[in-house]
């Protein structure tokens, strides 16, 4: 039996209050009230008085790990993290963007999150499909057990079954819609480069105008930059105003990386990201 959203919200307020009161953290990243119930905002509590503004419900989908790199190194931060979010935290620790010691992770085991735009359940179809945080200091509810554990890669079957030409036509149709607002990279906890390669002028990798060539360059390179790092939270696709199913490509790359290198992103703080690592016994077969 999963803990109710209301109960998680209460626990979140209590634990965040304790941390802020004891001075263990200088801020807690959580969710606050938006313009209505369905649209909560990422929220930062810096004092005990701020804690009252926190909410937690099925629409609190944003991945708060995205905000960790915004604060100076060494800032003590408490962060509310659902399953995929906790993997993002781990990945950021692996990449030395944050230090484990600077974080207090308030893990949220949760089942039944919903996409506010479509009202569809958020599950293994668009995310990694885990229910329980991989890493945490405090757990804000009981671990979720007994819910179906689905493979996050099942959704790929349809696209994988396509022929090369059909698949290219599929991606061209999807990526041609891109308006280059960069909501995907800005919502992504792993996209912290400044400047992003696509904003560079010398060399200029892709054009600024939202046309096939630049769109393809931007997205393919972004998929590549996230290879072995994407923790499959699905934020990029939820952030996209024109609903490009970016999660499909990220899932495919993640699946291949898992098969080739035997590790999934953001599962252990002792690992190194797959692409800044190697094994002498890696097989040449992966290049075929």
């Amino acid at each position: 039996m999963a803990t109710s959203f209301k109960q998680i919200e209460e626990n979140l307020k209590t634990e965040a209050g304790k941390l802020l009161d004891a001075g263990k953290v200088s801020m807690v990243l959580a969710y606050g009230r938006g313009y209505d119930e369905k649209h909560p905002l990422p929220y930062v509590a810096r004092s005990l008085a701020d804690v009252d503004g926190m909410v937690f419900n099925e629409y609190c989908t944003a991945n708060l790990a995205r905000y960790l790199v915004r604060y100076p190194r060494g800032t003590k931060i408490g962060i509310a993290a659902k399953a995929a979010d906790s993997r993002a935290v781990i990945q950021l620790i692996q990449e030395d963007k944050v230090k484990r010691d600077d974080l207090v992770i308030l893990g949220i085991p949760v089942y039944g999150m919903k996409n506010a735009k479509t009202d569809e359940a958020i599950d293994a179809k668009t995310t990694c499909g885990l229910y329980n945080p991989v890493i945490y200091d405090v757990l804000l509810g009981e671990e979720v057990h007994g819910q179906p554990v689905l493979s996050p890669y099942e959704v790929l079957e349809k696209v994988e079954a396509m022929g090369q030409d059909e698949r290219f036509a599929f991606w061209k149709k999807e990526l041609d819609r891109c308006i280059r607002c960069y909501a995907c990279r800005k919502a992504c906890p792993m996209c912290y480069c400044d400047p992003c390669f696509i904003d560079q002028n010398k060399p200029k990798w892709g054009e600024k105008s939202p046309e096939t060539g630049g769109n393809l360059m931007y997205h393919l390179t972004r998929f590549h930059h996230l290879a072995g790092r994407c923790i499959d939270c699905g934020e990029c696709s939820r952030a996209c105003p024109v609903d490009i199913p970016l999660y499909l490509f990220h899932k495919k790359v993640a699946k291949e990386c898992e098969e080739m290198f035997g590790q999934a992103a953001g599962m252990s703080i002792d690992e190194k990201p797959a692409l800044i690592n190697f094994r002498v016994e890696d097989s040449d077969k992966i290049l075929e």
Binding site: E207, S209, A239
Partner: peptide
């Protein structure tokens, strides 16, 4: 602005945002 991601979604869907860049491609 604590929640703002600084993406351009709001300005690109806005009917009154008119900023543009002149690019040589």
């Amino acid at each position: 602005s604590e929640a703002c991601l600084s993406c351009g979604a709001c300005t690109f869907v806005c009917p009154t945002c008119y900023c543009f860049d002149i690019c040589d491609e």
